[in-house]
């Protein structure tokens, strides 16, 4: 969250086999965001590692009114950083471990 002001975490334990993850995103540093947003609300959503893209989820969050268009890049980056980390961890651990 240090550079986007947003934090994305796993909302449920990753079982390393399912391509769909439950993620949770919230604003940790409101000063880093440009547009209007809700400060103390966490948004939980599912993300499919094989079919979804961070940009698409960010766009839907903007469309749903959670964030302003000017912050969609920061939202997408936060999701992408977390997804990249999860993929790296999965590569290290065999499925179902």
């Amino acid at each position: 969250a240090e550079d986007t002001g947003l934090r994305v975490e796993l909302a449920e334990e990753d079982d390393y086999s399912n391509s769909s993850l439950a993620l949770r995103l919230w604003v940790e540093d409101p000063k880093k965001l440009k547009g209007k947003h809700k400060d103390n609300e966490a948004i939980e959503f599912s993300f499919n590692l094989e079919t979804d893209t961070p940009e698409e989820v960010a766009y839907e969050m903007v469309k749903s009114g959670f964030f302003h268009e000017s912050d969609s890049k920061a939202v997408a980056k936060s999701i992408r950083d977390r997804v990249t980390l999860i993929k790296k961890i999965r590569e290290k651990k065999p499925a179902g471990c």
């Binding site: 940790e28 540093d29 948004i43 989820v57 749903s64």
Partner: peptide, 27 residues
């Protein structure tokens, strides 16, 4: 719970709930 709101967008479901006090960093 009444504090949780579900929003659908393009077939995706967003569940909105308050961030636990413990997770909010002093801003």
């Amino acid at each position: 719970s009444s504090l949780t709101q579900v929003v659908h967008s393009a077939g995706r479901r967003f569940i909105v709930s308050p961030v636990p006090e413990s997770r909010l960093r002093e801003s």
